[in-house]
């Protein structure tokens, strides 16, 4: 690089660029926080079952095999829309029936959830399925 472009000029461009970019990220984040109430179904968080369901989701590391809104592991089906794909009764029966023990097939552990916990889980998945995800996933299969 030419000698007219000095190291201190490069350094100043770096600090200026970094600060500007971070401020831009903050501004977009601020705007996001303003828009979110119309999209994130926050009213459903008043339901203690949804909150409890999220904790059950986390405490059993569901994200270690499944995706939720496309994020997580890619070993097992997307669950952001599973409430719409399968419905509440199927979800509960499925969790209760694990593992299938079918030879050579991927296995889901038995988590020994109570009836109450299963209902909480369903409430959480229902909430997740109603978040406005800009029409993702492309179809019901997730």
């Amino acid at each position: 690089m030419s000698s007219t472009f000095t190291t201190s000029a490069a350094r100043n461009i770096f600090y200026g660029g970094a600060v500007f970019s971070f401020l831009l990220l903050l501004a977009l984040t601020f705007r996001t926080e303003q828009v979110l109430p119309q999209r994130d179904q926050r009213a459903q968080l008043d339901n203690p079952q949804v909150v409890a369901g999220k904790r059950i989701w986390e405490n059993n590391n569901c994200i270690g095999c499944h995706t939720l809104l496309g994020e997580g592991a890619y070993f097992a089906p997307e669950l952001g829309n599973v409430y719409k794909r399968r419905g509440p009764d199927f979800i509960k029966a499925w969790i209760k029936g694990q593992p299938t023990g079918a030879p050579g097939r991927r296995q889901m552990p038995q988590f020994n959830l109570t009836e109450q916990e299963l209902d909480d889980m369903v409430a959480f998945l229902k909430y997740a399925s109603e978040i406005n995800t800009a029409k993702w996933p492309p179809n019901i299969e997730g």
């Binding site: 690089m1 190291t7 490069a10 350094r11 461009i13 770096f14 660029g17 970094a18 500007f20 970019s21 971070f22 831009l24 990220l25 977009l28 705007r31 996001t32 828009v35 979110l36 999209r39 994130d40 809104l69 496309g70 994020e71 978040i131 406005n132 995800t133 800009a134 993702w136 996933p137």
Partner: peptide
């Protein structure tokens, strides 16, 4: 300095490529 300027200028707001389908605007 040039490389890390490019990295932060593209990468900071580039965070947005994770915000397409998770309920963000």
């Amino acid at each position: 300095y040039v490389i890390i300027t490019l990295a932060l200028v593209s990468g900071m707001v580039g965070t947005g490529h994770h915000y397409f389908w998770i309920g963000a605007p």
